[in-house]
Nucleic acid binder design. Structure first.
Lengths: 101, 101
DNA sequence: TATTGACTTGTCAGATATTGGCAAATATAC
DNA sequence: GTATATTTGCCAATATCTGACAAGTCAATA
């Protein structure tokens, strides 16, 4: 997993002087799992992203964005048409939201 | 599945006056499967995308782009931070490719 | 260098999702 | 109506993901 999110939450954890043990306990997962999430080995659940934001007093929109971006990146990273596809998806998204209004 | 790709290949099939039966046979799948791919119910394999391009004499880059874009769209469609995440993923992608050179 | 504490790695069974294919339903054309 | 084309529903096989645990490394320090 491409890992902007993991890097960020590791950074935040350290800035808050917390151990994986402590954070893991709050998230009700074990330390190996947290380690893997920080290292990008495993994907956090959306609900856990919100908990990270709360625990670290961080902007949840920022974390959710990085979390999603990593997933998008993983999906397209090996594809030649990656950036084109991202642009197409983006315009498709904008079109749909515009229609909803 | 968001369906720019399916619409496109259905359009191309009809422009080429081909039946699902015929195309499916070329792809070595059954017609229900092709129907589902055209309708966005099932995702085509990358290898099948290339076959579509060949069969319909279409630009494979275009088809691959739509095919990937649909997948990206599906991933982000229900997320509030969707467009932000796409932008972040895009810049991440550009950075990595730049580094590779 | 033995012990301790923090973190990481490997593995695996169980859960979940995806796939391919068939049978049946529906739509379209004649 | 019949015949042909397409779609829908379903299911078993397979693949992928998940959570959990045991064992590993690494760094600090007694």
């Amino acid at each position: 997993m491409a890992n902007q999110f993991g890097d960020k939450i590791k950074q935040l954890r350290e800035a808050n002087h917390l151990l994986q043990r402590q954070v893991a306990s709050e998230l009700e997962i074990d330390t190996p799992m947290l380690s893997k999430i920080e290292r990008g080995d495993r994907k956090a659940k959306k609900e856990q992203v919100l908990l990270f934001a709360k625990l670290y007093n961080a902007d949840k929109e920022v974390l959710l964005t990085l979390w999603l971006a990593d997933q998008v990146y993983d999906l397209v990273k090996d594809e030649e048409m990656a950036t084109d596809a991202l642009k197409v998806a983006e315009s498709q998204f904008k079109y749909k939201t515009r229609r909803k209004l």
